[in-house]
Each structure stands twice: as structure tokens, then as C-alpha cells.
């Protein structure tokens, strides 16, 4: 009986590990069509993964919106151009 529980726990952890890995690959746009379809199907039946995916997606979008878009200072741009012009003679 004990052995059965152990096996069941191991299977649960293994399943969860697979879900986490799948979630990350889909989130980062690096899953193929088959994996994406498998994950979409999984989300229909797994509320924790559904919630987790939505939170992770929202954070990823927030990072893109709030932490990008910095422009290089004009003086640095000019300095690099000038140094390269000097090197390229």
C-alpha cells in the first residue's frame, strides 16, 4: 500500500514537472504546434495551470511594457560613431 502511495506521489510530481516545463516553453513562444495543442487541452482541465499561465503571461507583458523602450543617450551615440570613424580609416 505504502509503495502505491509513493508511486502515486512520484507520478504527481512528474506530471507537475511536465506541466511547468510545458508552460514555460509555451509562454516563451518556443513550443511547436503539437505541444501548444497539448497544453491548450491541458489548460481546459487544470485550473492551477490556467491561473499560473495567465499570471506568468501578464508578468511577461508587463516587463515588456515597463522595462523596455529606453533610448540610448545621444552623446553616447555620437561618441561611438566618432570613435568608429576614427578607427575606420
Amino acid at each position: 500500500m505504502e509503495k502505491t502511495n509513493e508511486n502515486s506521489n512520484a507520478e504527481g510530481a512528474c506530471e507537475k514537472q511536465k506541466c511547468l516545463e510545458m508552460l514555460q516553453v509555451v509562454l516563451d513562444g518556443q513550443a511547436d504546434e503539437k505541444l501548444k495543442a497539448e497544453f491548450d487541452e491541458h489548460l481546459k482541465n487544470c485550473m492551477p495551470c490556467f491561473k499560473s499561465y495567465n499570471v506568468d503571461f501578464a508578468i511577461k507583458e508587463l516587463l515588456k511594457q515597463k522595462c523596455c523602450g529606453q533610448h540610448v543617450p545621444q552623446d553616447l551615440k555620437e561618441a561611438i560613431k566618432s570613435k568608429i570613424d576614427n578607427l575606420a580609416v
Binding site: 511547468l20 499570471v55 501578464a58 508578468i59 522595462c67
Partner: peptide, 24 residues
Amino acid sequence: DIDEPITPDLRVDSLQDMIGDEIS
């Protein structure tokens, strides 16, 4: 750690109300 909740008490609506400074 794999058995811990994946995203403890963090919700999409709370994230959407965050201003840039917090995420940064």
C-alpha cells in the same frame, strides 16, 4: 518545492494595477 502552489496569491488584476516602478 514542486509541490508548492505555482503562483501563491498573485492575481492578474493585481498585476495590471501595478505601475512601472514596481515591476522594474
